[in-house]
Structures are given as structure tokens and as C-alpha cells.
Write a protein that binds this DNA or RNA. Structure first.
Lengths: 243, 243
DNA sequence: CGAGCGATTGATCGCCATCAAAGTGGGTGG
DNA sequence: CCACCCACTTTGATGGCGATCAATCGCTCG
């Protein structure tokens, strides 16, 4: 994220956000310690297990969330069951950007996740009195918009191999944010299933599997396990991703 | 757009925005007459002919724009020449949402267009002193994000026929904003070429042509000319669009 | 050890791309 | 006014990439 935190003073251990892993990367980054306390206390912390829903497409958008740990998918179902995943969220990401009354996408945890939950009414009220936060939200929305448009390019014009390469590099760039710890350099964790990857890339799981095997055979990656990949030749991967 | 104008007082004829067609639909809608004059005068009016570039992908993002009349495409080229159009802009739309230094997409007029141009520095300064405008920008960004994610669903999971039907309904919903005048009820104008439609829908021009012919043969639409379509059976069109 | 689910690999199919050609319409100049 | 041109669109024939159908593998858990 391109906006730097305006406050880096340490929080004392009585602060409700003391020790929070995303204190300086999430939307909270622009709040100083004095604003952060009331902000945090205006919401609550919630947990979701693997596969559990945070909200459904069509639900009234009563809350917004800040992802603390875990990972979330944003998806939509067509009437006949086809599914498209519009994006994945990782720790520090904000969930609930909308001006509509209803959520347009379903949000589900793909691994056990922890979130800060705020009612929209309270959140909006807080934003009204904190212009920095308003601007921060705009920056986040602009960032998400750029990411969504990149996905449009990927889905509209890239081949299966290019999509998979782009996806691996995207995950790597996001720092495998959730799991940087305990991961050797160049390794990335795939918290989502092949099915999720397929529905994100507009492909089928067999194609994902085949392309990963192909990348492995070409020595661009190594498959440590089904859930973890080592990027061996990043340069050729970038070239293949074509962008 | 879901945010209502906060001011509907008429502008007198000496006002620089007197008679502006997008006074109440563009970003300006949240500015009252007194703020609008200085705002308008902080920028300038520019014109672009058909096919002319407003900015290139990679250009430094020095300005933002408000589209007054005409139509604009936002596109990106892959190294080998494949092109994807991420969106079309119509009168009232804001151009230049980004937090990056460089534009990620190329913006080109697809028909003769008129825009209000503002330097980012001045625009940002103006926004800083007008919180309503900040909030309005967030609403616009959220709206664009929702639209981009709908396009992701379309590109990732819809068939060619569904894409074309969705596209026609989308144009209709936007009111063919640019050309509502002089258009019979149910008719929409396609200001863009088949090539633009193809690059927007992730298809080839032959497929666009075939699907339109198919819709015509099925009596869902009528092709008045290459540039104008009448939606005959909207209900079945919605059903076909599948969403 | 066996059940069950997700991932991988193999064989064939179908949608849309590609290649090819003919049709259409707007603009220009004679 | 008409002939011509050129770009865009439409229609037709064939091909390829990724989907679909099907079988096997391999890991986790009981």
C-alpha cells in the first residue's frame, strides 16, 4: 500500500490493539493511538472457521471488516452454479467497500480467520469525524480497482499458462502476507484449494493441475506440497505471465 | 449513481458551468454553485477527436478528467499486441482514479469528446478543502470497483452469447447516457466499433458479429444499423445474460 | 488398513479462434 | 450524381485450447 502510516508510536499493552499484526498495514495505519482505541472498541473481533461465510451476496451490508489473520475469498454464483472468485483477501485487507445496501459478492474464509467487525453505521460515523480515514478508504478502493482491472486483463486476454504464472507472482508479491513466517525464501503458500484457484482464474481444476505440472516440468517452479510452491526461475515466470 | 446532489439551485448564465449537461450527475453534483465556479476555473476544457489519446498507460498521472460529452475507452496492451478494454466511460464519468504515479491504462476517445481537465495537484488541494468531494470520490471508486468485478464474472464464467447480452443490457442501463436524445425508446447506440466490443468482452470481432446476428435471428434484438440496436425482448435478454 | 476427498493424469469433445472471402456503407474525387 | 476506395462488418470453413468425462493417485483421518 502506497500510503505511509502517519503514526508509528508504540501501543502500550493495555491498548486493545496492542500486538495487532496489521496495526501498520491495514486501514488503521492512519489512526494514531488515541483514535485507534475508540475505533477498535466501536467494533468487535470475530472468528470464522475454514469455509465459513462472512456474508452472502444479496445480504444487507450491515457491517464492514478488517482482516487480521487468515484468508478470505470474494465470489459470485451464476444461477446454474458456475462460480467466479473476484478476489482473495489477506491480513490487513479491508472488506466491505460498497455504496450499495446489499453485498454484491459472497465473502468466505478459506482458512481459519480473525476479523475486526464494525457496524456500517458506526464505521461511517467514525469516518465522518476522521478525514484521514476517508482518504485512506479512497486509496484502498483505488488500489482494489486497479487490482480488479488487472484481473480483467488476465481473464479477457491471457492463456491458461499465463494466468497461472500471473497468479503465482501475484501471491508472491502480496508477500504470502499471511504466512511469511516459517517460509523459506521464494516459497509461497497456497491457502486456497485448486477449485478456488480455478474459479479465480476462469479455468477448471484439471487445467490448473496440468499447468502447475507443466511449470514444474519446465523447472520454473517446484511443488513442495499441494499447498506450497517454490518459485525457482522468477524471471522466466514474469516473462511467461506476460505483463 | 447512488449519491444525490446536495444542491439543485440553478446556475446563472455567467457561471462557467452554466448549461453543463453533467452538472448534476458528475463528481460536481456535490458542489454548490459557489464552490463549483472556483473548481471549474482551476481546470480547463479540452477536446479529443475520434481515436485520440487522453493519456497512455505508463504516462505520469498529471491530470484527472471529467467527461462532459462523447465516450472513452480504458485499455491495456499485452507485449504481443493483444488488447483488453477494462471499461467504457460516458458523460458524467470521472477519469483518473489512481493512487499511483503512473496511469495503469490507456484512455482514448472513441467518438469526439469534451472533458474538464484538472491538474492532480490542484484537484487534490481542492478535495482537501471539500470533504463532500472526498466522499463523492470514494463513492465513485466503490461504484467502479463493483462494475469491474461484474466484468470479472462476465469474463471468467460467461459464454459468448451471455457476454453480448450482458453488454447490451449494460449499455441500455447506462441510458446510452451520451445519446438518450433523438433515440426511440429501447434503442441503444453503440458508439464503439466491433473491435472495441470484442476487446471489452474478451472475444474476437467475428464472434461479436455472429452473436449479434444470432440475437437478431432469435428476435431478441433488431439491428437498426451497425451502430444502433433495438432491444425487442428485454426479458429474454436478461435471462440469457444470466445474472 | 480402508474410506473419502482433493489432486493428478489421460482421452475426447466443443466453443470460440483463426483463416478466408464476400458484403456494406461512408467519404472522396471526377 | 456516380464510381471508386477503403475500412468495417458479416458470413463461411477449419482448427486448437481448454472443458469435459473418466480413471488413478495420494494424503488425511478414523
Amino acid at each position: 500500500m502506497e500510503m505511509l502510516p502517519i503514526s508509528v508510536q508504540a501501543l502500550d499493552e493495555t491498548h486493545p490493539c496492542f500486538g495487532c499484526a496489521v496495526r501498520y498495514s491495514s486501514v488503521c495505519a492512519v489512526l494514531d493511538g488515541d483514535d485507534l482505541g475508540p475505533f477498535k472498541r466501536s467494533g468487535s473481533t470475530v472468528h470464522r472457521v475454514s469455509g465459513e461465510t462472512i456474508f452472502f451476496e444479496g445480504d444487507t451490508a450491515t457491517h464492514v471488516y478488517n482482516l487480521i489473520s487468515g484468508a478470505v475469498r470474494l465470489s459470485k454464483l451464476l444461477p446454474d452454479g458456475r462460480r467466479q472468485i473476484a478476489g482473495f483477501l489477506f491480513p490487513g485487507d479491508f472488506l466491505g467497500i460498497t455504496m450499495e445496501d446489499e453485498h454484491a459478492f459472497t465473502a468466505e474464509a478459506i482458512i481459519p480467520s480473525k476479523l475486526c467487525q464494525f457496524s456500517r453505521a458506526r464505521f461511517d460515523a467514525f469516518v465522518d469525524t476522521h478525514p484521514h480515514l476517508e482518504r485512506r478508504l479512497y486509496a484502498i478502493a483505488a488500489h482494489e480497482l486497479a487490482a480488479a482491472r488487472e484481473q480483467v486483463v488476465l481473464l479477457g486476454r491471457k492463456t491458461a499458462a499465463e494466468r497461472v504464472a500471473s497468479f503465482l507472482l501475484m501471491l508472491d508479491a502480496r508477500g504470502a502476507s499471511s504466512c511469511r513466517d516459517a517460509m523459506p525464501e521464494g516459497d509461497i503458500t497456497l491457502p486456497m484449494s485448486r477449485s478456488d484457484i480455478a474459479d479465480y482464474l476462469g479455468l477448471r481444476i484439471e487445467t490448473i493441475s496440468r499447468e502447475l505440472s507443466e511449470l514444474k516440468a519446465s523447472r520454473l517452479i517446484r511443488l513442495t506440497s499441494a499447498q506450497s510452491v517454490r518459485l525457482v526461475d522468477r524471471e522466466r515466470l514474469v516473462q511467461l505471465a506476460g505483463g
